[in-house]
Structures are given as C-alpha cells and as structure tokens.
Deep mutational scan, measured.
Amino acid sequence: TYVQALFDFDPQEDGELGFRRGDFIHVMDNSDPNWWKGACHGQTGMFPRNYVTPVN
C-alpha cells in the first residue's frame, strides 16, 4: 500500500521517517491509528498518519 505526503515531516526522534510534501511512502505497518511504519527514499521509520493520504 502506498500513501502520498500532504506535508513535509522532519523527524524529531530516532526511528521516525522524514519526507517532503508529494513524496510516495510504502506503508509497512498501519496497525496503529496514529503512527504508521513506512519506507521512503531508502529509509524506513514511523510517521504520523495525518500527514499522508491514500493513493489509488
């Protein structure tokens, strides 16, 4: 499953995934309602669910 970033996200903690608005992120785990795990630009980490939108 892929999502697209609605906003820039700069990691604040180790293990978070940084990205820029418009980036596509491969979702690896969406079991938590607020923080998902994904991959983008060769990196993996957690990111806030409300920063992304589903891609059809």
Rank of each mutant, 00 (worst) to 15 (best):
T1N: 08
T1P: 07
Y2P: 04
Y2V: 07
Y2R: 07
V3I: 03
V3K: 03
V3F: 15
V3G: 04
Q4M: 08
L6P: 00
F7Q: 15
F9D: 01
D10L: 05
P11D: 04
P11N: 05
P11L: 02
P11V: 04
P11F: 02
P11T: 15
E13M: 13
D14Y: 05
D14Q: 06
G15K: 12
E16G: 13
E16C: 15
G18M: 12
G18Q: 12
F19W: 00
F19R: 02
R20K: 14
R21Y: 05
R21N: 12
R21W: 04
G22A: 04
G22Y: 05
G22C: 03
G22E: 04
G22R: 03
D23G: 01
F24C: 09
I25P: 00
I25G: 01
V27D: 02
V27K: 01
V27E: 01
M28Y: 07
D29K: 04
D29M: 04
D29R: 03
D29Y: 04
D29F: 02
D29P: 02
N30E: 12
S31Q: 09
S31D: 13
S31A: 13
D32C: 07
P33S: 11
P33E: 15
N34T: 15
N34H: 14
N34L: 12
N34E: 15
W35I: 05
W36Y: 11
W36A: 04
K37H: 11
K37L: 11
K37S: 09
G38D: 01
A39R: 14
C40H: 09
C40T: 07
H41N: 12
G42S: 07
G42R: 06
Q43I: 14
Q43T: 10
Q43V: 14
Q43A: 08
T44I: 11
T44D: 06
G45N: 00
G45A: 01
G45W: 00
F47N: 01
F47R: 02
F47Y: 01
P48D: 05
R49S: 13
R49F: 05
R49G: 06
R49H: 04
R49V: 10
R49A: 14
R49C: 13
Y51Q: 05
Y51N: 05
V52L: 02
V52I: 06
T53Q: 15
P54H: 10
P54G: 10
N56H: 06
